[in-house]
Design a protein around this nucleic acid. Structure first.
Lengths: 191, 191, 191, 191
DNA sequence: ACTTCCGGGACTACCCGTTAAT
DNA sequence: ATTAACGGGTAGTCCCGGAAGT
């Protein structure tokens, strides 16, 4: 297999990342061996290391999945409430959701230990926060004076999303609908 | 001098947990070997295994530290705002704070993978949430009608605390004072 | 197995070194895996690494065998010719000899690449050379004037020993008796 | 431009061998990966394997460099002393010399393990020894009776050359001029 | 027709949590 | 209560075959 199209390469990488994401979510980063990934992808060790020079690179690639974006782009028109709702849904609906929730928890934990991952996570988080802040600022005025800086509120709401994922990841039973409602009420009341 | 006192045993365990907590926070659970703990505690391998039958037990013990309690008890009189503030301070002030923040992130991540840890974490979380809900409910009425169930609000606020710890753990730079302010405003506005 | 006598430890190390020496001689340093050594010693991987923190350390230990010494000491009375003869015999007699010859060649090759090994080898070589020089100087005068510095002659003779081992290692067929004779004649003629 | 000329092929091989020799000398045979050679030659993996079917073949080709010959031929007129001097210079002068010395040590070590290499090395060695023996025999008589068979002396001197290379390879500090002098004196005294 | 370079999968040195012998 | 020992597991590398361009 010589010269291979860039498209092929991209697809191959994506294939690996997708398979790895599932295994990582189930077993955690540390609990997943490269051999597990060989089995999960059906590829060989050599193939894996051709696309990702180290396990950590693969972890970063998995963590670098779209969060809050659709095809890598934010929807500039999406109302703040819908965005928040979408983010919550992302980590809570069905078995897929729990899977993703565990992954999110893993990522934030590892980001505290691996600088490369921390950099990536910080960048993504900042982008999402700024987007959310902009959407919050764009809400129709509720008459009363704005009570908090939209940026601060966005930061707070995103922190709550992270915590929400952690709770979901531990099979914590709580009313997810109500959690969403609280977020809505907060946005209504504070902006 | 045959049997050692129960007191001695308890102290010994605490000693191990304290040393382990520091190492775990620095290197993560998976990144810490039993040998690292032998070095950190100055004890022998056998001693460690006498007090904790497995590494996971130690992880659970470390995770089972005080969260929001003082000497194992909640202060029934503490105002909600102060409690929240205290929780935030716990993971943000000084190097100690960052250490604790990383540990919190580790715990929530691992809880998503290890049932034993999940059980423990859920129990603690529920207790703290109920306490916070009670303190919120005890706030002097602000005149207007209560907008959310104190329990839901408490859940939401605690989720934000968890997310806050994750952010701090990645050295995310943001204004911690403002984060606290947002929490205050929310409590004022919604209860 | 707690506290174990220093004697026991020494014996264990020696056991490993002896087994490793044989395997190394047969397969070369690079051609020998740690697993090969596990099999050869009958010990576990963990045991091996307890006594030698790395493969290279083991290589150095093997190379650090006695060369030209008896129980770690040179025989101060041994005539030069006998010493040379003994050294030659060491690498040429029987299957044992060929084994040792290959090992010597391995050591000198690796010493060119690994500083730690080079240091050890240089020290040993210098000691042997000085001893041989002293024994040469102690020869009864042959009447004629000394033609070369004994130290230089010793260096030359030892170089020839090394080359001799290399030749033997490749199953080079040549008359080992005559080689020895040449060495004798040289010593007679030049000192 | 279908078939490439034999000349081109030969040049390509030579190019590879030259690059490989340098890398092998620096890192040893075992310490050099095929990838290292890909980098060193600037060729592709496939190209390398087209010219040399395996790594060992490459090792043999590298070892099969000129030793004591000029353009593949011995100079039939060269005096013995000059030949010896030339051989010594080959492995001792400048950084080039040390490089070559390490390579020589590598070759003799590997020859003890790989029959294919051993065969090649034995053949070359025998040719050189016979040539040297002939040049020694051609020396003007020194008056006294010949004390040793020129062939035996040649063997001994070559063994010393090999040892000399090993010593140089380990950065052994010794007076190379004197080493040469000893060789001269020996030839004078014994032939 | 010739080169490229992807892919395979066994293998490497080393480390781990844990047990058991002293 | 100490520590030697266990033995399977770890991330990552190796040499090389063979399919896919040019």
């Amino acid at each position: 297999m010589p010269k291979v199209s860039a498209e092929y390469t991209r697809a191959r990488r994506a294939e690996i990342v997708t398979a790895a994401r599932a295994v990582f979510a189930r077993q955690g980063f540390a609990g997943t061996s490269m051999n597990d990934l060989v089995e999960a992808t059906g590829m060989s060790m050599g193939a894996l290391y051709r696309y990702f020079p180290s396990k950590e690179d693969l972890v970063v690639a998995v963590a670098d999945g779209r969060d809050g974006t659709v095809d890598g782009e934010f929807d500039a028109q999406e109302p703040a409430a819908e965005l928040v709702s979408r983010l919550l849904t992302y980590v809570s609906d069905g078995p897929e959701g729990a899977t993703h929730a565990r992954l999110v928890a893993q990522i934030w934990a590892d980001a505290g230990l691996k600088p490369a991952l921390a950099r990536m996570v910080r960048t993504r988080h900042a982008a999402l926060r700024d987007h959310l802040a902009a959407r919050i600022a764009a809400r129709p005025a509720t008459g009363g004076p704005t009570k908090t800086d939209p940026a601060d509120l966005a930061e707070f709401l995103l922190a709550a999303m992270i915590g929400y994922a952690s709770l979901v990841a531990t099979d914590h039973e709580f009313d997810r609908e109500r959690f969403r409602d609280v977020a809505d009420v907060i946005m209504s009341a504070l902006s």
